[in-house]
């Protein structure tokens, strides 16, 4: 870095993280201060006496929502990345076409259907939504991990083996680092989509930011729907722009 770069570095970091920080700030403000906006919502929803959702406070709903998404995404990442690695090894090669096909097709399968299938097996509550999100979130991660691993120039792998790296060393030191940006992009898609999809959990009794939306639909209260949608939207934007920042930082090395 040049001399001018050093004192400005802290400044620049704030500048670069401005977008994710802005979304986060808005999200937090709304979480604790939704009631302050009563005037606005009353103007939108003139028919109802109650315009601020209050069956649970937004901090709790946000926390539950995040927890479900985090658990599901973590599991999806673990399972998805492992599966993609397994089918690109010599022993698992036979399953590659099958897994690749499922991964590219699966995205067209609606999450509601996954949920509908999960409830009879797992009952109501948090578990079916975690399973649904896990399955649904698996696909972009598997697809991207496969793309990342298969996109590596074969001469790099030939050199790695030819120099005497073991298969494990090639995987850890060469394949995964080179595929990382594509894998992270898959995780980003998975998490962002799951933040929205998690709202469906409210229909199977997993209380989260989907609650105000469902309740709003059932009671014909537009203000509720808007509050849930705003929170989910801001959460998705916060997480997505954070991933984007991280991706840019990686690209710059």
């Amino acid at each position: 870095m040049n001399e001018r770069g050093v004192p400005r570095r802290a400044n620049r970091a704030v500048h670069r993280w401005r977008l994710p920080l802005t979304w986060l700030a808005l999200l937090l403000v709304l979480t604790v201060g939704m009631a302050e906006l009563e005037g606005v919502f009353r103007w939108i929803e003139t028919d109802s006496r109650q315009v601020i959702y209050d069956r649970a406070d937004f901090v709790t709903l946000l926390g539950r929502h995040l927890l479900v998404v985090m658990v599901a995404s973590l599991l999806a990442t673990l399972v998805g990345v492992s599966a993609a690695i397994a089918v690109t090894r010599r022993a698992g090669r036979d399953f590659l076409p099958l897994v690749a096909q499922i991964a590219s097709m699966g995205q067209t399968f609606p999450p509601v259907a996954v949920l509908a299938l999960a409830v009879p097996v797992l009952g109501f509550g948090t578990l079916p939504i975690i399973v649904a999100l896990l399955l649904y979130g698996l696909l972009p991660i598997v697809r991207n991990t496969l793309a990342g691993l298969q996109g590596i120039d074969s001469s790099i792998l030939e050199a790695a083996r030819g120099m005497g790296m073991s298969r494990g060393q090639v995987l850890r030191q060469v394949e995964l680092p080179l595929a990382a940006p594509v894998i992270v992009a898959g995780i980003r898609t998975s998490v962002t989509v799951n933040i929205a999809t998690a709202a469906l959990g409210a229909t199977v009794g997993a209380s989260n930011l989907g609650d105000p939306i469902i309740s709003g639909i059932v009671n014909g209260n537009t203000a509720y729907i808007l509050q849930g949608a705003l929170m989910i939207g801001l959460l998705a934007l916060t997480v997505d722009s954070t991933f984007e920042r991280l991706a840019l930082r990686r690209a710059r090395r």
Partner: peptide, 12 residues
Amino acid sequence: GYVIQSTGLFPH
């Protein structure tokens, strides 16, 4: 030692 045409250097 092994040297190939496309070098196979690790880009990262």
